[in-house]
């Protein structure tokens, strides 16, 4: 038939590739990034926002990401493919000084402490689920914190900032948390 040369070349190449075991290149730990993105998605499905948080029943659920562009990109890849409770998800990169209006979830990544305090301060009192991946941010008032435990990514929840946000976090999510810090503490 046609293309015997092309075919043979392609087969040979394929064979070469299959038998070649290239070294594993760590690329800024993609798994961690993927799991973080998956957590953010999941969290949003276990949270109830107060009435009026969505302009329409099908308005987009906005996830803001500060201080981690790679994570934002990872999330963008999932956007649209997996609506959360009927809401399509949009991702917004949040930079210092920008308004948090319209956001439903905010991820606070790595940044200097002043910026972090500013950001979490601006989020306080809003119906905005704040998620971080550092103890520093958790101390500064993030609601959910992702922690690395034995090579696994787990999460902790602090209920005090949740209380003033009018958000409701489902019991199922709390049950899966590694630690839940009660309001009183």
């Amino acid at each position: 038939m046609r293309a015997p040369f092309l075919l043979r070349a392609a087969c040979a190449l394929l064979l070469c590739l299959l038998t070649w075991n290239a070294p594993a290149y760590a690329q800024a730990n993609p798994i961690e990034r993927e799991v973080k993105a998956a957590y953010l998605y999941k969290f949003a499905s276990f949270v109830e926002w107060p009435e009026g948080s969505f302009a329409r029943a099908d308005s987009a659920l906005q996830i803001g990401v500060a201080g981690n562009d790679a994570l934002a990109e990872q999330l963008e890849q999932m956007v649209g493919e997996r609506p959360i409770n009927g809401h399509l998800v949009t991702v917004r990169r949040v930079r210092r000084g920008e308004s948090l209006a319209g956001l439903h979830v905010l991820f606070v990544g790595s940044m200097e402490k002043g910026a972090m305090a500013e950001l979490l301060g601006a989020a306080r009192g809003r119906s905005l689920l704040t998620v971080s991946d550092s103890d520093e941010a958790h101390l500064l008032g993030s609601m959910v914190n992702l922690v690395l435990v034995d090579d696994k990514l787990r999460f902790e929840v602090a209920l005090r900032p949740v209380a003033s946000s009018r958000l409701r976090i489902s019991a199922r999510m709390l049950a899966a948390a590694r630690k839940v810090q009660q309001e009183a503490s």
């Binding site: 798994i31 276990f46 690395l148 899966a176």
Partner: peptide, 14 residues
């Protein structure tokens, strides 16, 4: 959520 907490981050199997 529970399963996510069991993924080995550095196993790089994916």
């Amino acid at each position: 959520l529970e399963e996510l907490g069991t993924v080995n981050i550095t196993s790089a199997s994916k």
